[in-house]
């Protein structure tokens, strides 16, 4: 296998809410208020090969968006490294780092919030390539037309404003904006979640077309397992900040190993499942402020052992290309 395009090594990201004035005063009188710390991402490692589509799934609060933002360079990791083409991004000089950031683009969930409402869409798409000197000023117009056409937008619409477009078309504008800087790696954070079903298929087809035409690499973050199954080569499943399973898509969907992945796949509503007797997994997703000790999933796990309550299982390769973090894999 060639060197991965992106490698994430032992990345953690904490968010700290410092104690406020009232709590400081309370502490002066002997209270024990501590800053609140959320381990949004806790020691996560994975690699993405060039041209690969990796799906990242999990429920709310599992840290999947934070992983996306750390990989994109929007957030710095609290610990660990993000490596782009084998080089630690944090150690690059500012010019090189800017280049890496340009090669990595992000597409967000809400195309109503991610576009500047006061900017004509031709400007929105053309601004970044012009600013970074990717395209000569006299060619910019033709270049924007070209990018818009590639994303299924009528180039004649480029003097319009975002509010004149529907949700699906706005998402095409966001994609065109991301593509305009000639990225190699796209991070899509719930990029089709806000779209209607009939529009969702159009956008997914666009992602697949662009992948084939431009040899793009994707990190596709979604809570929708049907979408991820369709698009991804490999899938990473996260639960409360940690990776619980990582496997090629077909194998994961055929035979998930981790009890959480099993539960998650069993709950996915499918059109072929009729009047099913839902047999839901028990319990709630715990608060990431105060996750359970040991394996985070043990309070809900039907197979939990005493060991699961004290010791967090490491993510291990249990078969070629298949990784899982579960103590059950140690017991034959």
């Amino acid at each position: 296998m060639t060197a991965p395009l992106i490698e994430v090594r032992n990345v953690s990201r904490l968010f700290v809410k410092p104690i406020d004035l009232a709590q400081q005063i309370a502490n002066a009188f002997g209270a024990h208020q501590r800053p609140e710390i959320v381990h949004a991402v806790d020691d996560v490692s994975f690699a993405i090969a060039e041209g690969e589509v990796v799906g990242l799934v999990g429920e709310s609060g599992c840290g999947k968006s934070t992983v996306g933002r750390v990989v994109a360079g929007v957030l710095d990791p609290s610990a660990g490294q993000v490596r782009f083409r084998g080089r630690d991004v944090a150690e690059l000089g500012s010019e090189e780092r800017r280049q890496v950031k340009l090669k990595t683009q992000m597409i967000f969930q809400d195309p109503f919030a991610s576009l500047n409402p006061r900017m004509r869409i031709g400007m929105t798409i053309g601004e970044a390539p012009r600013h970074h000197g990717l395209v000569a000023a006299e060619e910019l117009d033709a270049y924007v037309d070209d990018v818009m056409a590639r994303c299924g937008l009528e180039p004649g619409f480029k003097r319009r404003y975002p509010h004149q477009f529907s949700g699906g078309q706005r998402q095409r504008i966001s994609i065109a904006r991301a593509l305009a800087v000639k990225p190699e790696f796209l991070i899509c954070d719930e990029a089709v979640a806000a779209l209607d079903v009939s529009i969702q298929a159009q956008i997914l087809n666009l992602f697949m077309k662009l992948r084939a035409e431009l040899r793009l690499t994707y990190l596709f973050i979604s809570h929708d397992l049907g979408v991820v199954e369709h698009l991804s080569d490999r899938v990473i499943v996260m639960y409360l900040g940690r990776i619980v399973e990582m496997a090629p898509t077909e194998e994961l969907f055929r035979r998930p190993v981790h009890p959480y992945a099993q539960a998650l796949l069993a709950e996915v509503p499918r059109i072929s499942k009729r009047r099913s007797r839902f047999a839901p997994v028990k319990g709630e997703i715990p608060s990431p402020l105060n996750p359970p000790p040991g394996c985070h999933f043990h309070p809900r796990c039907p197979h939990a052992l005493p060991r699961c309550r004290v010791e967090a299982p490491a993510l291990r390769e249990i078969a070629p290309g298949r990784w899982a973090a579960c103590h059950l894999n140690d017991t034959p």
Binding site: E59, S60, H223, L225, A263, L264, A266, E267, V268, P269, R277, F278, A279, P280, V281, E284, I285
Partner: peptide, 13 residues
Amino acid sequence: DVTIQGQILFEVQ
């Protein structure tokens, strides 16, 4: 979330 949705569908049914 998917697992919570599953629980509610179960109760409702």
